[in-house]
Design a protein around this nucleic acid. Structure first.
Length: 275
DNA sequence: CATTCTTCGTGATTTACCTCA
DNA sequence: TTTGAGGTAAATCACGAAGAA
């Protein structure tokens, strides 16, 4: 029987924990955090719904036995599963590491920390700095393929005297930072594009305003036209000055027209304005 | 100069999510 | 359909070097 509903209450100072919060608590006891999690489970019993309340003792699964021995402990916490997995992969890496030590080192300055597991024992994290050679090899490898399969990872790690995990992390960070840089580049391109479009929009708006003012200045002139020059538009029944070749019309459109490109097509403008 | 502070690059961790067997 | 393993992205931490004040 697996609990379908899970309500978790953090008994810590904060009820919601972000990754950042959790990171801030790094170095403190994450196991303690697990112990503080109170889990309320709703069982799926066909006869009745029974509420089971139990403390999620991740690291003390035997304590769950009294409530319901068939409850899958691992289903409560991905973290614990992950830790187990990490532990096993760590073991694998240690084996790799032992093999690695047989390999000729690429550089006299080796960054493999033999006491890696004790790295944070003293509360300080030692910062690994890759050598130039190691970085170059990783960069070359990244140029060829941005992701690695297990074999490639192992081979590369062996070649560089690093743990496979370190190679994996390097590639993860490299991908993330490459993407970040690309995003910045894209952002810059979009920004320029936006500026150009803004300018274009400004120019077009100005053009619209000029056309509008042109139209307004053309209306009084049309009123002055003699009835003899007016024709009826067949589509909208409006009257208009049909003499598109009228020299006076051409002149009237020339007045105040600051846009040279309007010259030569006054009749088109005239028609559009009327209909 | 020596010290302190800030910034930046980067290795490492955690978590969530996805895919696949 | 569920489950666990394995992988990746994203967010973040933290160390250490370099430069400014």
């Amino acid at each position: 029987m697996i609990c379908n509903t899970r309500l978790s209450l953090s008994l810590g100072s904060s009820t919601t924990t972000t990754p950042a919060d959790q990171n801030n608590n790094k170095g403190k006891s994450t196991q303690e955090d697990d112990h503080q999690e109170l889990t309320l489970c709703l069982s799926n019993s066909s006869d009745h719904h029974e509420y089971l309340t139990n403390c999620n003792m991740i690291n003390n699964p035997q304590l769950l036995g009294g409530v319901n021995s068939s409850i899958s402990v691992s289903s409560f916490s991905n973290t614990s599963v992950k830790r187990e997995r990490d532990a096993s992969s760590q073991l694998e890496e240690e084996v790799e590491n032992l093999e690695t030590k047989k390999v000729v080192l690429i550089s006299p300055k080796v960054n493999v920390d033999v006491d890696d597991d004790n790295e944070y024992g003293g509360g300080t994290r030692k910062k690994l700095r890759l050598t130039k050679e190691q970085s170059d090899v990783l960069e070359d490898s990244f140029k060829q393929h941005t992701t690695l399969n297990s074999k490639q990872k192992r081979d590369l790690a062996r070649r560089l005297s690093l743990r496979p995990r370190q190679v994996e992390v390097w590639f993860q960070n490299r991908r993330a930072r490459t993407k970040l840089k690309q995003t910045e580049v894209d952002c810059e391109i979009l920004r320029k594009c936006y500026e150009e479009l803004k300018e274009e929009n400004k120019r077009l708006n100005k053009e619209i305003q000029e056309l509008k003012s042109l139209k307004m200045s053309a209306v009084p002139f049309r009123v002055q036209l003699s009835a003899a020059t007016l024709s009826m538009c067949p589509s909208c029944d409006r009257t208009y000055g049909g003499a598109a070749t009228d020299s006076s019309t051409k002149i009237s459109y020339s007045i105040g027209d600051q846009k040279p490109h309007f010259y030569g097509i006054p009749s088109q403008i005239h028609q559009q304005q009327l209909c």
